[in-house]
Simulated assay, not measured.
Amino acid sequence: MSLLTVAPARAHKVIASAYASGQNLEGEVGFSNGDMAKDTLVEVFDPAGRKLGETRTDGDGFFTFTPTEAVDHHFVADLGAGHVARFTVVAADLPKGLTGGGGGAMSAPATASGEPSDIPVASGGGVVPAEIAALVSEAVKQEVRPLRREITAYKEKHDIQSILGGLGYILGLVGVVFYLMARRRLSTAP
């Protein structure tokens, strides 16, 4: 009787990723159910296990790290309760112009102020073209972040196991229908 009163457990996976954005690596850490890792320490190591630096996630689970070496960057974030996010950004995906030596750098979570005083103006009164590209890039980045999270959550919810499970249910229902049809046919036979 006590087994019937136990509530079902809701499993969730850790999701984490990072990508190059300008001279930084930006990423996010959270769970497949949509809960993001808030104010979580993210440590960065090289392939030999030497610590390159660390950063913290913001309130939305996002972080920014400035790489200083052209090596694979292994990210590790302990989310508690046995959940540890581990992911790698390979050296080929890092921003260009990094060297092989030097120490790691820390960076706080990125924020965009977007105040009018931050927009550079050319001497003729127009906005500098290179700065327009930077402003557009920042705006697009802010809009794409939620889409990345939704895509990752979608991938986690609709993996191959759930697809095969759905097909199994369909085949099971077809089997029950055939069984009932065969039983009805046998009962009406002379």
Rank of each mutant, 00 (worst) to 15 (best):
G172T: 07
S162G: 04
A108N: 05
Y19T: 10
T88M: 06
A122I: 06
S117C: 02
T88P: 02
L173K: 13
V176Y: 01
L41K: 08
A130N: 15
G103T: 06
M36Y: 13
A20N: 12
G101L: 14
A182Y: 06
A81F: 13
F63Y: 05
E143H: 09
A108Y: 08
G101W: 15
L164F: 04
Y19I: 08
I15C: 02
P95Y: 08
T188P: 06
A133I: 11
V76I: 05
V128P: 00
D60P: 14
G175R: 04
K141V: 12
S17G: 09
G49K: 03
T64C: 15
L79I: 08
R183S: 07
D118Q: 03
E156I: 09
T99C: 07
L25F: 09
L173F: 15
E131H: 06
A91F: 09
T57K: 00
S107I: 06
A85F: 02
N24P: 12
G175Q: 05
T55R: 03
F178H: 14
A92M: 05
D39A: 11
V90S: 05
I160E: 12
M181E: 10
D93N: 11
V176S: 01
S137A: 06
D159G: 07
V44P: 00
E150P: 08
A105S: 10
D60Y: 15
T111F: 12
L167P: 07
D35K: 11
F62Y: 15
E150N: 11
L41V: 10
S21N: 11
P95R: 04
E138H: 06
R86E: 06
R50P: 00
I163K: 02
A70F: 13
A85L: 04
L52H: 02
L147D: 06
G27C: 05
G22C: 03
A48F: 10
P116Y: 00
E150V: 14
V144F: 05
E156F: 12
F75R: 01
T40K: 03
L79N: 04
G30F: 08
A133N: 11
S21C: 10
F31T: 12
V14E: 01
L4R: 08
V174S: 03
G49M: 01
T152F: 10
R148H: 07
Y19W: 14
S107F: 13
P8F: 11
R10H: 12
N24V: 14
L180R: 03
V29K: 03
S17Y: 14
L164C: 00
D60E: 15
I170F: 12
V89A: 01
F75T: 02
L4P: 13
K157L: 04
Q142V: 03
I15A: 01
E54K: 10
T66I: 15
L4N: 09
A16N: 03
V128M: 03
K51Y: 00
K38H: 07
L25Y: 10
E26T: 09
I15Y: 01
S162P: 04
P146F: 09
A153C: 09
S117P: 04
G125K: 02
F75W: 02
T68E: 09
A110M: 08
A133L: 12
K96D: 13
